[in-house]
Nucleic acid binder design. Sequence first.
DNA 1: GAAATTTTATTTGTCTGACATTTAAAAGTC
DNA 2: GACTTTTAAATGTCAGACAAATAAAATTTC
Lengths: 243, 243
Amino acid sequence: MKIKPQKSVDLSAQIAQAIRDAIISGKLIVDERLPSEAELSDQFQVSRPTVREALKRLAAQSLIRTQRGASGGAFVNRISFEDAYSQQVTTSTLLLSMNAVSFDTACEARFALERACAPLSAQRRSADQLATMRAEIFRQAQPDLTDEAFCASDVSFHRSLVDGAGNPVLSYQLAGAVEAMQPLMNMITFSARSREEIIALHSQIADALEAHDAHKVDVALVELEKYTRKLAQDVAQQHRKPA
Amino acid sequence: MKIKPQKSVDLSAQIAQAIRDAIISGKLIVDERLPSEAELSDQFQVSRPTVREALKRLAAQSLIRTQRGASGGAFVNRISFEDAYSQQVTTSTLLLSMNAVSFDTACEARFALERACAPLSAQRRSADQLATMRAEIFRQAQPDLTDEAFCASDVSFHRSLVDGAGNPVLSYQLAGAVEAMQPLMNMITFSARSREEIIALHSQIADALEAHDAHKVDVALVELEKYTRKLAQDVAQQHRKPA
DNA sequence: GAAATTTTATTTGTCTGACATTTAAAAGTC
DNA sequence: GACTTTTAAATGTCAGACAAATAAAATTTC
């Protein structure tokens, strides 16, 4: 691991990048212990606080983990799907909220991705996943459910659909898109009539998955997307004409 | 912004989380200036190095940026699609390489997502994007191209396809999946015969996009996925029987 | 009076040195 | 040999200091 002389950039950022490169290139492998902070400060010719700032940067990306005590130190972390997943949700959520992404754009992306999973899910969904989806549909039918709880259940339902594809890479990618949409979805208030409609479409999806009918799943998803966008439009229109 | 007392967790991690929550919940808005490090150490009752470690964690996630000098400080950063994109590529790449994700799984995910973009791209692709794809196809036909350059061109080609959908959220999600696959793709060595086949399919895709024919794009992509997986299988088989 | 220059204050970046806390291994005790 | 105590190594935290960058204020100059 070499030094990388460059002005006008934080030393801690440079050191973090050097270690990051070493991990990505495979020079440092999973569970390998990095040199101690004292050794790193020697090696890079900087003080320990600077090294620590660099290590914290890497820890924030789940690239390393640290342990205290003798035989402790910083270790290269095996990034788990959960780690990656939660990072993606945070990033995607902020990306949507900070960049004024239109509801239509986010919605289109989400359903496009979800429809990509549907055929695989129709083929492979487990009985367990199907049961989860039915349970969520049941919950959604409870009249005293808050809008937030309804949306949370909606997310669970769609996550099960995605997980049904049995492809962890797909699940990881999609989870971000689906969950990041939730704050936007929460802005749509659901009338009893709207919920009925959504639940009916969810049931159609579950039925189609049970029958391993990929085409019917797709049709229902297209319908659901259309309906979701219509709801958003209605809400937007009401905002313009509050009288 | 309150304190959150909890033992057995780094103070810097707790402080980072508190600020992160404030950003996500909207209590801190884009371009707003955080209190100075001195003020934050007062507010949280910790030392400045501890505050700095917390801030570096947030900087690593592009949640804040810092400026030196008078009227400098830490500012809430508007996460750009590029920021999010590069983070996603890093995470996805490590996720694939560290977790022994099979080539088939990664390949399936990638093509499933890409096929989700195809109909939109067939509808909306710009002339410019089409020209980029043609240019990449031409480059891929150069006989003296290294395998790495061929793969890089392949990534560019597919990125253009995805960007053609004209949906930045889709582009951001997909870019990670496509680029993270490149190291895996690099492990497949391409014979002249294989390249021809791939280029032919790329041309089919470009032609179909030019004709706005979504179905033909999909057919070609399915074909390309099949061929890619076959190539990977052949390579794996050769490894088992090197004689 | 206006423009250019200098000064000043503020803030982050970095360093030194120290102590606290945790943890595993070594040493000691029964 | 099993248990307890000690020790050493490492991260976590703190305090105080100086360097460097930068914008605003004060001063000088014409």
